[in-house]
Write a protein that binds this DNA or RNA. Structure first.
Lengths: 340, 340
DNA sequence: TCTGGCACTCCAGCGGTCCGAGTGCCAGCA
DNA sequence: TGCTGGCACTCGGACCGCTGGAGTGCCAGA
């Protein structure tokens, strides 16, 4: 039907206008600014229908209309044209990320870049340990009964733990142990480590067994424990823009949720490289985020994501632009990590 | 003179009252709440003098008085009684920080703890590399012409860099190199590394010389370069408390300055363990901080600070409490790092 | 040197009015 | 049947003037 088509265009126009002006948009303004080919009166009729269907709402009787979460959702789902980044933005990305010196640096630059491109709060997750592979496992004796275990992954992550060993240990023993462990683990995905560990203990020479067991145990702990919770956050200053305008209440609960990390990590749990996920307002489980939208995507070279990154902002955000920015940065980060 | 003494007490009362209520404080309220032994009229006279001397000011004619930066400064300087933490706070600190699993974890917990104790924004600096000593230097071959150098310090910091080596290198050569470097550097303060490097290159066996040179160069770069700029920030949600109340304008510039890091790092450049530094409002060089106060102290076991930590908040803050909290956390962090 | 009294100032809050933007509905037109 | 112009209606935001209260400075008296 011709009606539905026009109504869709009206909805789209409302979203665009509201996103850019932050004012409830009325029929007259719409007719003037967007070339819809019909009069304000007709648009009013369409708006009445859209409101009845729950896509838009009016803050009060004599105000214009504002998109609802459902309206944004509809808008985003119909957003088939992937907005390409401008040339300036592309070069900005390269300039910004090249010259990064280690993983920490790459992620730090990414988060700043993303915050700058989108003018939102950006979050970047450290590469998930369980999907990384061991590049090297180093043991440094601290005393005869304590070892420092340093795990270096192919994604550039470095984790360290102190291992209390059950027996006094000399430096040659440590060297043996190091050789043994590296032979076994180097190149292996960390997710497989838990399978390998028991066999390794069994097959080890007797005098090394307790040591292998202790180090393996610590290694496994490192995997399951909170180490997943590494998140870099940037651009929080962007929340202070029109705080009262963009967010109901204050930004406080939102900032708290971001620092909490776990909330965001849960949202990023299911990201895939390439497929941008958008969750809008009330779609977010966590209460503090019900006034916000979250755009995220996975990064990583394979088809499984090493980690996620994204932006958080008011539901009233430039979805097309943010999705493009998030995707572009993720791709670049993926390349950088694959190279190193 | 008796006058001066009473005037000091009046100033102190004004500061305390204003900090806790956030309302300009009048002579009547002062007389009622603080047992100054004189009538409101007398207090008014004192206040007039204090205002003339620049310690307090009134927002408008018929309002109470508010301390100026100079007033806070005077108050802080006379704050000789170190307010001890409550038992509950002490145990909170221990509970919170014990069980930290590595450096990242220690600093992360510290910043959260500090933010929670003071209800301000907390910042913690990573231990300065140049004052740390080398615990171990690890080399992992990435390809025949690239090595991954991993530096582990006695403070638990781990830095990594990729080193491009000028000649193709085999694994035995790498092992030799590792032994040589560790023999030379282990236990040495990183600040001394730059002195040692040239001699090391000279005395190395000829076939290792270019390698030693390359790795040393990277090591030195790691020291001078931005690695100083590692800062953990927490509790930004506390800025959103009474944003409009506590800060003129918005919190935006402040958040930006915090993310900038360099501003805060400059403030913490001269910290010493034990000696708490307070800089108030306009005393801060950076424009974004002129509405804020910064309380900081160094941590570290010796007399030289490994790094700094502190809190940032409105000039209208509980200086005594924050100074105590900052000092206590710093001491605890110092202990933790010395142990590991 | 402190105190009580007094006149003065000025902001915050309250209620009332007005204006404009935006709507819904209706009758007329293609 | 669907679009359009016109019209009456609603409602929130801005503006205005008023008032009460808090706080001050000053002065005369103890």
């Amino acid at each position: 039907m011709a009606h539905d088509d026009r109504r869709l265009r009206v909805l789209r126009a409302i979203v665009q206008d509201y996103v850019s002006t932050n004012d409830p948009v009325g029929s007259k303004a719409l007719a003037a600014r967007y070339d819809l080919g019909v009069s304000p009166a007709t648009i009013r009729n369409d708006m009445a229908v859209l409101e009845e269907e729950g896509y838009i709402t009016q803050p009060h009787t004599s105000a214009g209309r504002v998109p609802t979460d459902k309206g944004y959702r509809f808008f985003v789902d119909r957003l088939n044209t992937v907005k390409p980044l401008s040339a300036a933005e592309r070069t900005a990305i390269e300039k910004f990320l090249d010259g990064a010196v280690d993983l920490h640096d790459v992620l730090g630059r990414s988060v700043r870049l993303l915050a700058q491109l989108t003018r939102q709060v950006a979050v970047v997750q450290y590469p998930t340990l369980s999907r990384s592979a061991v590049r090297h496992l180093e043991l440094v004796p601290l005393s005869t009964s304590r070892l420092l275990m340093v795990l270096i992954t192919d994604t550039g992550r470095v984790e360290q733990r102190v291992v209390e060993v059950p027996v006094d240990t000399e430096s040659e023993t440590v060297a043996e142990l190091r050789t043994l462990l590296n032979a076994a683990f180097t190149g292996a995905k960390l997710a497989e480590a838990s399978d390998k560990a028991p066999g390794l203990v069994e097959n080890a020479p007797p005098h090394l067994r307790p040591l292998v067991a202790a180090v393996s145990a610590t290694l496994l702990e490192t995997l399951v424990e909170p180490s997943e919770d590494r998140l870099v956050i940037g651009g929080t200053a962007n929340l202070a823009h029109g705080s009262t305008l963009d967010f109901p209440g204050t930004v406080r609960p939102l900032l708290e949720a971001l620092e909490e990390q776990v909330v965001v990590l849960r949202l990023m749990a299911e990201v895939d490289p390439g497929a941008v996920i958008v969750s809008i307002g009330e779609e977010n489980q966590h209460e503090a985020l019900t006034g916000a939208s979250f755009v995220s995507v996975g990064y990583g070279s394979g088809e499984e994501a090493l980690g996620g990154l994204g932006v958080v902002g008011p539901t009233r955000m430039d979805y097309a632009g943010n999705m493009a920015a998030v995707r572009a940065v993720a791709r670049y980060v993926g390349h950088l990590l694959a190279e190193s």
